[in-house]
Design a protein around this nucleic acid. Structure first.
Length: 227
DNA sequence: TATTGATCATAT
DNA sequence: ATATGATCAATA
């Protein structure tokens, strides 16, 4: 049995190997190895699973706007799945701010920067299963191929275009085939300054980019098929 | 019951 | 305030 946190990986492959070492463990076992208490449910600890895996794999703990493993250029994402291994939730990627609209280039966007290389770690997320009993699944590295990148880019350009033009009334979670824009804030009443379609100052609720569950479901299936 | 909109904790 | 980590829960 190795000690935790695991040694710092020097390559994405090593990181994948480290994540593979954790696969199969129950969250309670992993938390115990790290000396971290497990919450009874995730209602008041929504980021528990993600933070637990970050600590186990030695991610540089911070809230900076950079990948979890800066030296490797790898982003770590946990993926809640049901007993059959199907995705239960969408995946938050990053916030969409007015000032980011200056960056209209896909290649330099925060979204693409985060999704270039992702280490996905499936974790049982069925609410009826106690958090400590949930198991960590087999991890896999994902670098979007040309097709996937084109699909995401198309959605991103549609959504950013509406944001940039201040079409806030037209925005909703219904837009985007694989990527969507949804509220991302502490409270539904949270507001931030923006410019509407007439250039007038308005207050709007903060939003973030999310990958739809059916998109991550497809990644998971492709991985399981071994391609 | 799948999905959209709302929300929670913590660090900086 | 806004970034990180997401899941909860009301609605369609």
């Amino acid at each position: 049995m190795a000690t935790f946190p695991l040694p710092k990986a020097t390559t994405p492959a090593e990181l994948l190997g480290a994540a593979g070492f954790v696969a199969g463990l129950r969250l309670g076992e992993l938390a115990s190895l790290l000396g971290i208490p497990v919450p009874p449910d995730l209602r008041r600890a929504k980021g528990f699973v993600g933070s637990l895996l970050e600590r186990a794999l030695g991610a540089s703990a911070s809230s900076r706007a950079v990948p979890d493993f800066p030296e490797l250029g790898v982003e770590l994402k946990t993926l809640p799945v049901d007993a059959s291994g199907h995705c239960l939730e969408s995946t938050f990627v990053c916030t969409a701010e007015a000032r980011d609209l200056e960056i209209v280039e896909w290649e330099r966007s925060r979204l693409w920067t985060k999704l270039r290389c992702v280490l996905w770690v499936p974790v049982e997320g069925t609410r009826a299963v106690p958090v400590e009993q949930r198991r960590v699944g087999a991890p896999f590295l994902w670098q979007p191929d040309q097709t996937e990148q084109a699909l995401l880019r198309a959605d991103w350009e549609l959504l950013v275009s509406l944001l940039a033009r201040g079409k806030f009334d037209s925005l909703s979670g219904h837009l985007g085939r694989h990527l969507q824009l949804r509220p991302k804030a502490a409270k539904g009443s949270s507001r931030r300054a923006a410019l509407d379609e007439d250039g007038a100052r308005v207050l709007v609720n903060p939003k973030g980019f999310y990958l739809r569950a059916r998109f991550t479901e497809a990644l998971l299936r492709r991985h399981l098929l071994g391609s």
